[in-house]
Design a protein around this nucleic acid. Sequence first.
RNA 1: UGGGGCGUCGCCAAAUGGUAAGGCAGCGGCCUUUGGAGCCGCCAUCUGUAGGUUCGAGUCCUACCGCCCCAACCA
Length: 547
Amino acid sequence: MATDLASGKHDHVVTRFPPEPNGYLHLGHAKAITIDFGIAAEHPRSRCHLRFDDTNPSTEETEYVDGIIRDIRWLGYDWGEHLYFTSDYFGKLYDYAVDLIRQGKAFVDDQSVEAIRANQGSLTEPGRESPYRSRSVEENLDLFERMRAGEFEDGSRVLRAKIDMAASVVAMRDPILYRIQKKRHHRTGDTWCIYPMYDFAHCLSDALEGITHSLCSLEFVDHRPLYDWIIDQLDTPSTPRQIEFARLNVTHMVTSKRVLRRLVEGGHVRGWDDPRMPTLSGMRRRGYPPRAIREFCEAIGVTRSESVIELANLEFHVRQVLNREAPRRMGVLDPIKVVIENHPEDGEDWLDAINNPEDPEAGTRQVPFSRELWIEREDFMEDPPKKFFRLAPGREVRLRYAYFITCREVVKDASGEIVELRCSYDPATRGGDAPDGRKVKGTLHWVSAKHAVPAEVRLYETLFREPEPDLSTEASMDAAIAKDSLTVVSQAWLEPALAEAAAGERLQLERLGYFSVDPDTTSGRVVLNRTATLRDTWAKVVRQGES
RNA sequence: UGGGGCGUCGCCAAAUGGUAAGGCAGCGGCCUUUGGAGCCGCCAUCUGUAGGUUCGAGUCCUACCGCCCCAACCA
């Protein structure tokens, strides 16, 4: 592409993103989108078109068109006035086909599907020419006209290019250009009953739109000779060029419409926008910022080598953006009660808390402190190992933005389960620093019990345990799906600032991770999705202690 | 076994034939009112293998090896 600009072949670039409206966009599409739109944005006088490749009415629906538009907008891209549909070109495409027939380079084939397949040859053997290949131009013209008029049944005839049945590239063995499908099209209705195939429609649509560089994935490399052949035979307004790059693969994820559909239809997830899904709608609901996805796609580069990116790489970009942007809040997922014995029964005390240490502009908020608090159960240990810096009997720790507290007594129920910690606080440490200069090793997050907002919190693991799951058969796929990728915490407590949280908001619960407010949230109950955990070096210490 | 694509650190990925960038992960350390963030350092004598050309090769040549794609009236 750089060569074309340097040589003066083009002084600008026109690309296109050509989704088929038969499903939802996923992370793999995000890579293509950032490349297609990104390259256009990098060059002067350039643009990227959004073109729906809607040539197969039996699988495509308007519902998907709307979803795709919404997802690309969310990702942050804009096509201006350049929204197109391949179906807009059906008339022109038909004329091109007629032109090909007139040139004697296309013919109507009456063979059955089975016969065409049988005569296709194999990878190592050439195919056999159709007995209808040498029909006259007049007969072909007549037959094609009647195909269009609806005189023939589905599958009874096709229009094929006349190229070379012995070609080593299978795509060049008299490829099918048009097939009969008496299906209502989501945009053209019943106007047509013959529809062009991808290979015929795509290159010509590119040429019609003045696309300079038609970027696609590696599996189309074999189709490039056909792409060029069709453009060569016909009088097109421009000569686009196809350039291929490798698709995106990420460990523990799949970007195959077939597999994603099975996850949804098999009830393994709650829908296309389940936060575990690699769909754009799923990642949006999960709380992935679009900027993070864009930065990830830019960071992994564009090459022709097939690669599998580690999930950690994606998560790095998600955390990087969220660290800069997400407001900090406090919440407790697995609560244990703390009673501050020397705190007045009805007293309450509002403390200043920083909203985002990475962004001074984010300001501060007030959090209430009172006699009864919730802290995280795992932040207390009766008999702590050496490197455990959190609360333990007799030990003093800091409650973030509040006070130092010291654990005085552990209260258990009949079964030995800890139900309450009796603690004292040092009023002189208000705000979190001791005037006498004494230090504590641990800082805990907490929530005032009296002021706490109830919440449901959904924690996610990857849908596949293995980095590269075997999806070759239905059985192996079912075996590869993790059955416990969703954990629902039904009784979590959040600080009151979160009472009014609106769906889609992203935040960090300090020390726990990044979360997004799920659309299931109601006025009485907040629902959070955990987007990503924080990096956890304590977990590493624990791991090393075990090994 | 026909055609095509690809092989540079655990994962990505740069490198006019001029002496192997960078990011992620990992590992040390500093700092810290998030065991977060940040900061510092370490991490390929070597580019699938074997030859060859050259003063000089990841880049050129030859031969092997390995992985992936192509036989829908899908895109």
